[in-house]
């Protein structure tokens, strides 16, 4: 077990005790868990404030201001205008900055949409019959059939899901109702895959903590 009588050792001990305190909630709600939770929240808030000052406000605003670029004071005025939301008389001032920010975000968002999704729209046009070739130049029948099947499945899924999200008319027509229902089932399969990934992610975090406890703290796992 790591000795707690050095700086590195004390840090590991603190980390290990905090981990155990937080995991103690799995047994039952208890004061040790509450204590650790509040310490964590306090530390995270303080660190967030410090890092905001150190990495954002100090280099990009304060340093510029003290270097003589006085116009940066206007950002403080604009930021302060947000707080007029609490005054009935001055609330119009907060709306000014909000409207400006909304306009900016909308413009940037529009550009961002094209950057992110235009390629995907292009990539959704897939050939339904794919011919794959082997290295010798012949036709790879198995590969071609599988690639064609994948593309057909992609198209069918896309049509079904888009039909499900088409709300401009009531889905009374039987084929449309069936297609939309298939779209819902296909989405359920996708959500299942997503949930499986989430379980995998949470277990990874658990393994990370186990490794810390049993490798760095009590040296039961060999590195």
């Amino acid at each position: 077990m790591t000795s707690p009588f050095s700086f590195g050792g004390a840090v590991i001990w603190l980390g290990a005790l905090a981990t155990l305190a937080l995991y103690s909630v799995l047994y039952r709600e208890n004061p040790i868990y509450r204590f650790a939770e509040h310490i964590f929240l306090g530390l995270a808030t303080a660190m967030g404030l410090y890092m905001t000052w150190k990495t954002v406000l100090y280099p990009t605003w304060y340093k510029e201001l003290v270097a003589g670029h006085w116009a940066w004071i206007l950002t403080l005025v604009a930021g302060g205008m947000y707080y007029t939301i609490y005054s009935k008389r001055l609330v119009w001032m907060s709306r000014l900055v909000m409207m400006t920010m909304m306009g900016l975000s909308a413009g940037l968002g529009f550009r961002g949409f094209f950057g992110t999704y235009m390629k995907q729209i292009g990539a959704s046009f897939k050939p339904l019959v794919v011919m794959q070739h082997t290295a010798a130049g012949g036709v790879d029948v198995g590969g071609s059939v599988f690639a064609s099947f994948t593309n057909i499945l992609f198209l069918a899924t896309m049509v079904c899901v888009m039909t499900y999200f088409f709300f401009s008319f009531e889905q009374k027509n039987r084929p449309i109702r069936r297609t939309a229902s298939a779209g819902r089932w296909l989405m359920m399969i996708a959500f299942g895959a997503m949930f499986g990934s989430t379980v995998m992610a949470r277990l990874s975090l658990f393994i990370g903590r186990l490794t810390f406890l049993f490798q760095d703290w009590i040296h039961l796992i060999r590195s």
């Binding site: 950057g115 390629k119 990539a123 895959a193 989430t198 990874s204």
Partner: peptide, 30 residues
């Protein structure tokens, strides 16, 4: 995706498993 992807620069991703299913369409589109 918004700013670097349109320039055609190679973009790689290492993400948490929670995020991964949403990233496959981007892999598919190149």
């Amino acid at each position: 995706y918004r700013y670097l992807s349109p320039t055609g620069v190679k973009l790689g991703l290492g993400c948490t498993a929670v995020m991964a299913p949403e990233q496959y369409p981007f892999l598919d589109s190149g």
